[in-house]
């Protein structure tokens, strides 16, 4: 009797999946309809699908909201998922703009070309990756070598870098995050392309920025890294020194990123499947404007400097 219950339960689930499928199909249908360009009527509402890097998602949301007040007929949907996710979606032609916190990889570019696309790259802001620890932790600076050794698993106790006798709990974003790849290349491998070192296996891979902030805020053993825009006052940023000048420690800030004295910083990108036209072109041009770049500043990122704009 219980067995037949399970079977009937299974059947119910299948009906549910079927309904879901139908729903999806109809949803896709309507979306395609609204997406169809209508050159005769400019008042027709335009839909822009924007997806990718979790680092950029808050910024992209803020832009989308502001832009809606300027151009109410343009609707922008913003979702995260990671740089890889966004670029994959771009190749699969399911988004209009992909956000990425790293540059497009050669294989992604090849795949896009194979799909008949000609991806265009736009630097939309700069970001610094802040290394964060719990405010209770007395450590406040690390050399790049120390930081790398921590994440390689060679340094496992805070006392080895001048802190208390506590185990180090290393936090990282998941491997699909652009931040993860950037940190791997810049910090763990010292930007050396031939270095094949990877994260120590016991590095915790957390699915979200919030997860990292939450654990660091709560756990005095933890060390993590996150985009400057995500760092809250509940965690402490660590000053980092470069390989060349190990005695000069720099805290990430808008100023130190802009003058390139803070080491772990990078460009943030948007990619379009092809040379943008129409509303998408207008949107990207607006993002480069002073108004939009002020939002960048407000969210803790670093605006692109004048000469980097075209």
């Amino acid at each position: 009797m219980i067995f037949s219950d399970i079977i009937s339960n299974m059947r119910r689930k299948f009906v549910f999946i079927l309904l879901l499928l139908i729903l999806c199909l109809t949803a896709c249908g309507t979306k395609a309809g609204s997406n169809a360009p209508n050159p005769d009527n400019t008042e027709q509402s335009q839909y822009i699908d924007n997806k990718g890097s979790d680092t950029i998602v808050n910024l992209a949301l803020a832009w989308a909201e502001r832009y809606q007040t300027i151009k109410p007929n343009v609707q922008i949907s913003v979702t995260g998922g990671g740089s890889g996710t966004g670029l994959t979606a771009l190749v699969n032609k399911s988004v209009d703009i992909a956000n990425a916190s790293r540059q497009i990889k050669q294989e992604e570019l090849d795949a896009a070309k194979a799909a008949g696309l000609n991806p265009q790259e736009f630097v939309i802001a700069r970001d610094a990756i802040a290394v964060i620890i719990n405010p209770e932790n007395p450590v406040d600076h690390l050399t790049l070598t120390q930081l790398s050794a921590i994440y390689r698993g060679e340094i496992t106790n805070w006392k080895e870098v001048g802190g208390e006798d506590r185990p180090i709990v290393k936090l990282s974003r998941e491997t699909n995050s652009g931040t993860h790849v950037f940190f791997l290349e810049t910090v763990i491998r010292f930007s050396n392309k031939d270095d094949k070192t990877i994260f120590s296996a016991n590095t915790l891979l957390l699915p979200s920025s919030e997860g990292i902030i939450a654990e660091v805020r709560e756990n005095p053993n933890a060390i993590g890294y996150d985009g400057l825009g995500y760092v809250t006052s509940e965690v402490k940023m660590v000053a980092i020194s470069s390989l060349e000048t190990p005695e000069v420690y720099v805290i990430p800030s808008a100023a130190t990123v802009a003058d390139s004295s803070y080491l772990i910083s990078r460009n943030l990108y948007m990619y379009t499947p092809d040379v943008p036209t129409g509303e998408i072109k207008a949107y990207i041009e607006w993002i480069m404007s002073a108004e939009a770049q002020q939002i960048v500043k407000d969210l803790g990122f670093v605006p692109i400097v004048e000469n980097e704009r075209e």
Binding site: G81, G82, G84, T88, E108, E174, T175, N176, N202, L204
Partner: peptide, 27 residues
Amino acid sequence: MPSGLNAIFEPVRTMTATIASEMGEVA
């Protein structure tokens, strides 16, 4: 790789979590 009795008090990665967090990005 879990090893020893203490493994229960250490971080682990499950199969489902791996699929969920990585499937979105792969080509």
